[in-house]
């Protein structure tokens, strides 16, 4: 048994490293896409600069004014954002693990951590991704940012509820036969049903301009999905390693020795 403090410290440190590496992945795969998108955005902005009120966006990368943070600053900010986001997720993950561990029907803490990470990834990343795929700069109407933020958070919560419904259903159908395929089918059906119903009810949002290159759009989206996949994968594996007393200290130096 570990104390909550011990689990929390491990969650935070693992989250920091997972975030840092996800940030590195994002830097390599995503920054070139963001640069291309900003170039398109700036080309659009200068093309429309004779229009009145072209500066109504909630923020912009327009080159005319001195930006608050330079592009290099934002590239550094990417690592900072990913690391802090990882720390936050790591803290929440440690709490979730502490509170839910006994409800997960496995004797292995490692499988429990990996299962929890898979559940979080499905609910927080995959469910929002397929309804509202993330967009690069130059895509999106600044006037709808509040609506898009609310629906994004809503899909995230619905995603977690869908995962919960899937787990609950997979346990319920056990009464009809305790076979792996019955549990998987029952759980999968409940999860998919919840997600499909939510997708149908939630508003359609598509603000991609017709002129925006489709290749660039999807390169960006896959970079974003990859970034979050790296983050959650490392969070799950890292946490499993960090709480396991059998983990060789050399393999996970600070975390285990702490």
């Amino acid at each position: 048994m570990r104390t909550f403090g011990s689990l929390l410290v491990r969650g935070l440190i693992v989250g920091l490293f997972a975030g840092l590496l996800a940030g590195t992945f994002a830097f390599v795969t995503g920054e070139p896409r963001i640069d291309s998108a900003i170039a398109i955005e700036e080309a659009n902005a200068s093309a429309h600069s004779h229009d009145a009120g072209s500066g109504s966006g909630h923020h912009e990368h327009a080159a005319e004014e001195e930006p608050l943070v330079s592009r290099d600053g934002q590239r550094f900010g990417l690592f900072l954002a990913a690391s802090l986001y990882g720390v936050a997720l790591g803290g929440i993950f440690a709490v979730g693990f502490t509170l839910l561990r006994r409800r997960l029907r496995t004797s292995s803490d490692s499988y429990a951590a990996l299962g929890l990470a898979a559940a979080g990834y499905a609910g927080i990343v995959l469910v929002p991704f397929f309804k509202y795929p993330p967009n690069p700069p130059a895509v999106g109407d600044p006037d709808t940012i509040t609506q898009r933020t609310v629906t994004y958070l809503l899909t995230l919560v619905i995603g977690l509820l869908a995962v919960w419904a899937g787990v609950a259903a997979s346990r319920w159908v056990q009464r009809f036969g305790d076979l792996p395929w019955i549990r998987l089918a029952g759980g999968g059906a409940a999860l998919v049903l919840t997600v499909v119903v939510a997708y149908l009810i939630l508003p359609k949002i598509n603000e991609v301009p017709d002129t925006f290159p489709a290749t660039l759009l999807w390169q960006f989206r896959l970079a974003s999905l990859g970034t979050q996949t790296v983050l959650w994968t490392l969070l799950g594996i890292g946490f499993a390693a960090a709480i396991d007393r059998r983990t060789p200290v050399a393999a996970a130096p600070k975390v285990v020795a702490a």
């Binding site: 994002a26 963001i34 986001y85």
Partner: peptide, 10 residues
Amino acid sequence: ELMHDGRHLL
């Protein structure tokens, strides 16, 4: 603005 790129890619 500092978190901008991170926000997009997250």
